[in-house]
Design a protein around this nucleic acid. Structure first.
Lengths: 212, 212
DNA sequence: GACGACGCTAAGCGCTTGCTCACCCTCCGG
DNA sequence: CCGGAGGGTGAGCAAGCGCTTAGCGTCGTC
């Protein structure tokens, strides 16, 4: 597995996870969870990938579920940051929507192994942990909805159903994590560009967007 | 759980699964897999939901994985049938695309518990079993791509990247299974109508479609 | 150079898992 | 009234699970 290169070579090197051994375990867990799913992954497998004994995991994390929670939390923080940056940024609604979709999709493609865990292992979380993740997701939803609402108000967009379209846009972007690189041959940038274009069409963007 | 009503009251009553006890087990497995995921579901849980002892499962199915395979197979058959019916049907490309998305989405919403298992538990399948499911998915992809290609050729659609847009359309529809009814308040028909409209916008449909 | 503190391991506990097996009903043809 | 077949059960096996605990080596500190 060349996963070390992927995470170490790229950005987001999980720098917020501070004891180095804890970071190694977390990265190993991301790989394992993405590959086989949370429930099919054993603590022995995670520790093994990190080059440690099974017991080492419990020095840095109380349970296997806490590991998932940490991963989910960091990932959702990043996702929310991407969306709010675009949402609060300058430019027309179309430009902001383009930026939001483009960067959100690019992240899901480039970090599809992390994204897969973050987006598809939600209900393996304990109820309390799930609650604070769900709160983050609602804020992501709000960020996108705001762009759409702004665009409609400014007459830039034609969107009969703003909440429904918000849901569809987010759903479309998130699902990139499921299929990306299984199909191969597209770069994250290319997928981001394609999806930004498709979403602008979905909202019936009129002028503004300096593209195509 | 009122799942019995859902599957018995609606269409697709799993009538193709012939010994009645085997059908009860399969329906129980669909519920359990959709709720907790394949790996988190125990054979005791499945048998319990079907009102049987754990050992009864092995009279009708060789392994737990065979159960998943049967579910996946039936579901993918249904999904492919829906798409090819629309794809081979009469009407303009826009009308056929509308029908395809509308019915495909409606199915994913109405049978979201089945769809969730079918679409998101693929890699719990054994390699040989996965292979024949993947073949079915490729045919689904081809059905949608054909509609798009027809529309472009006829000058009805404006689609720069047909394979990429095909992927996006299918991805959008499939992901309905993930979020539907968790959010609540929309009927399968409403989601189908919304999504058909969004997809027609994505492909830049010009005239034809007698809608909106 | 004694000494905790810390990061880690070997061994293993208690429990659950997928699955099996010996046996038991119930039905039905003769 | 018998007998065999097939759907079903209770008990349980081997293996694997998440997690714990006793102890070990290696530090920095005085």
């Amino acid at each position: 597995m060349d996963s070390v290169e992927e995470t170490a070579g790229g950005y987001q090197p999980w720098s917020e996870v501070t004891p180095e051994a804890a970071r190694r375990l977390l990265v190993a867990a991301v790989e394992a969870f993405a590959e086989r799913g949370y429930h099919a992954t054993t603590t022995r497998d995670i520790a093994g990938r990190a080059g440690m004994s099974p017991a080492a995991l419990y020095i840095h994390y109380k349970t296997k579920e806490e590991l998932l929670h940490r991963i989910s939390r960091i990932g959702h923080d990043k996702a929310l940051e991407i969306l709010t940056t675009a949402s609060d940024g300058p430019g027309s609604a179309a430009e902001r929507l383009d930026a939001a979709v483009r960067s959100f999709v690019r992240w899901h493609a480039a970090h599809h192994t992390t994204a897969r865990v973050v987006q598809y292992e939600l209900d393996a979380l304990a109820p309390e942990h799930r609650a604070d993740i769900v709160a983050l997701r609602r804020r992501s939803d709000a960020a996108v909805r705001r762009i759409l609402a702004d665009g409609v108000e400014a007459g830039e967009f034609d969107v009969p159903d703003v909440p429904g379209t918000t849901l569809a846009v987010l759903s479309l972007c998130i699902d990139v994590a499921r299929w990306f690189s299984v199909a191969g041959q597209r770069t994250p940038d290319e997928v981001g560009a394609l999806y930004a274009d498709l979403v602008l069409r979905m909202v019936g963007a009129r002028p503004a967007a300096p593209r195509e």
